[in-house]
């Protein structure tokens, strides 16, 4: 449980970090919160030659609202615990706050970062799930270029992403939730803080009459990456009651082909995904109605 030798750098500017990354590419790993990387190093499942510690980089730790574009931008180094209590997120993108509550244990939430979680691309990661549900974008830079990747184009299978070896996520961007929106995340863990066997996220917007105007639904832990469930979302539009929600949640099955492993059979994972999606939809809808009352 001792890592192989590596060279460690701790740059002070994003430009410096990007030039290291440009130089070393695949043989370097970015160290942010270290909650996944450090165990991988210790078990020698990852043996990078270089570690680029980005914890000192300025400007990556903020959460900003841009009213003109109706977006919220979250710096890559924002820690999970900040997501839980940030007033901007609670008001305008509360699905991220909801999701962050389920991440690991308090020590993990204190150190882990949103950029790290998304770049790690764990199939049951809570933040990949929430950002997927919200159709977020990842702001990515390399030494010489900059681009924005829609999250639906970002994940490429278990722990795989569209990042080039010289690229770094510096921010995550999501659209503000419309008024009269309620959000909920549900997951099933064997123990407190475990990776989810299955999880579901829902953001439901209702119209003035209380019918579903827009639905965002995604499930996690049941495929190589989080999966948006467009058929469920379509089926929910215009609906107002729980029976219809349950029927809509059944459609999750058409989006997934869950893996089987020592923790759960494919059938059980599918069953959980549907049950959790139904719960998340119910709960998000109820919150949307509260939001309507307040509006």
């Amino acid at each position: 449980m001792k890592p192989a030798a590596f060279e460690y750098v701790c740059p002070d500017t994003l430009e410096e970090a990007l030039s290291y990354l440009d130089l070393w590419g695949d043989s370097a790993k970015i160290l942010a919160g270290g909650q996944s990387l450090v165990p991988l190093l210790n078990m020698r499942l990852a043996q990078p030659q270089y570690i680029i510690d980005i914890n000192r980089l300025p400007g990556l730790s903020g959460i900003t609202r841009h009213p003109d574009t109706r977006t919220v931008e979250i710096g890559a180094l924002v820690r999970h615990h900040q997501l839980i209590s940030n007033p901007i997120l609670l008001a305008h993108a509360s699905l991220l706050s909801e999701a962050a509550r389920y991440i690991g244990h308090i020590a993990i939430r204190s150190r882990g970062t949103i950029g790290g979680s998304i770049a790690h691309a764990d199939p049951s990661g809570e933040l990949p799930l929430a950002v997927t549900a919200l159709r977020g974008h990842l702001k990515v830079r390399s030494r010489h270029s900059q681009r924005t990747i829609p999250i639906e184009d970002f994940f490429g299978g278990y722990y795989m992403t569209a990042l080039e070896p010289n690229e770094l996520i510096y921010a995550v961007e999501v659209l503000e939730s419309p008024i009269r929106t309620g959000c909920a995340v549900k997951e099933f863990q064997r123990r407190h803080g475990d990776f989810a066997l299955a999880s579901a996220a829902a953001a439901i917007t209702v119209d003035e009459s209380g019918a579903v105007l827009q639905a965002r639904v995604a499930v996690g832990g049941v495929a190589p990456n989080a999966v948006t469930c467009s058929k469920v979302e379509e089926a929910l539009c215009g609906q107002t009651n729980n029976n219809q929600f349950s029927l809509a949640a059944e459609l999750v099955a058409q989006h997934i082909d869950p893996p089987e492993d020592i923790q759960a059979s494919a059938d059980y994972r599918r069953h959980l995904a549907i049950a959790l999606a139904a719960e998340a939809i119910d709960s998000a809808y109820e919150r949307a109605l509260w939001a309507k009352e307040e509006a």
């Binding site: 165990p39 078990m43 064997r190 123990r191 407190h192 803080g193 475990d194 990776f195 020592i262 923790q263």
Partner: peptide, 27 residues
């Protein structure tokens, strides 16, 4: 919670870490 799962064909342990060998926690 607890069981070390051994692949019946290869004899390889499948969950030889606390990631997925589940010890009961206080919670």
């Amino acid at each position: 919670f607890e069981a070390l799962i051994i692949d019946p064909d290869s004899g390889q342990p499948q969950n030889a870490s606390f990631l997925d060998y589940l010890l009961p926690g206080a919670g």
